[in-house]
């Protein structure tokens, strides 16, 4: 509970800072003689964010719930490996999207799908391999032949 309060405090402060940045950026936008112009609405939202950020952070600081806990802990998951697994999943997904433009959907997706299944803990290797190959092939043909959505294909340059 204490950990969440500390995190909430820092998130609240972050939102205030973000609101100030938005306000400053908005003030550079053009205004209009009547109505909101380009700047009015984002400035209004920035003020709301600042007020809400303060409302989140201030009570925690005023109640003294920060004493001796001025660090954010990210160890909230019961399983210590959970954070690593999530990080690997995120990294794999970004890498996949980065590489798929060059290596193509048909080549890369089976590897990605199989890798994700292993990461999630699926251990029936034969079935995982079959699904990892058949699903991307099916999706590829469905999209390119039926929907006329051309998924990325392998290219050298």
């Amino acid at each position: 509970m204490k950990e969440n309060k500390v995190a909430d405090f820092f998130i609240g402060i972050g939102i205030v800072v973000f609101g100030i940045v938005v306000f400053m950026l908005s003030s550079a936008l053009p205004s209009a003689p009547t109505g909101l112009g380009s700047r009015g609405y984002p400035m209004f939202l920035a003020i709301l964010l600042i007020v809400l950020g303060l409302t989140l952070a201030l009570p925690i600081a005023l109640k003294g719930e920060l004493k001796g806990e001025l660090k954010i802990q990210f160890s909230g998951f019961k399983d210590p490996h959970a954070v690593i697994k999530i990080a690997v999943c995120v990294a794999m997904s970004f890498l996949y999207v980065f590489l798929v433009a060059r290596l193509g959907f048909l080549l890369l997706t089976p590897i990605y799908l199989f890798g994700l299944m292993m990461l999630f803990g699926y251990r029936k290797y034969v079935l995982a391999s079959v699904v990892s190959i058949l699903l991307p092939v099916g999706v590829f043909f469905l999209f390119t032949r039926v929907f006329y959505v051309f998924l990325p294909t392998f290219r050298l340059f």
């Binding site: 990605y112 799908l113 994700l116 299944m117 999630f120």
Partner: peptide, 8 residues
């Protein structure tokens, strides 16, 4: 198995 498929 389902979640990786959902991701793709």
């Amino acid at each position: 198995m389902l979640m990786p498929i959902v991701m793709v």
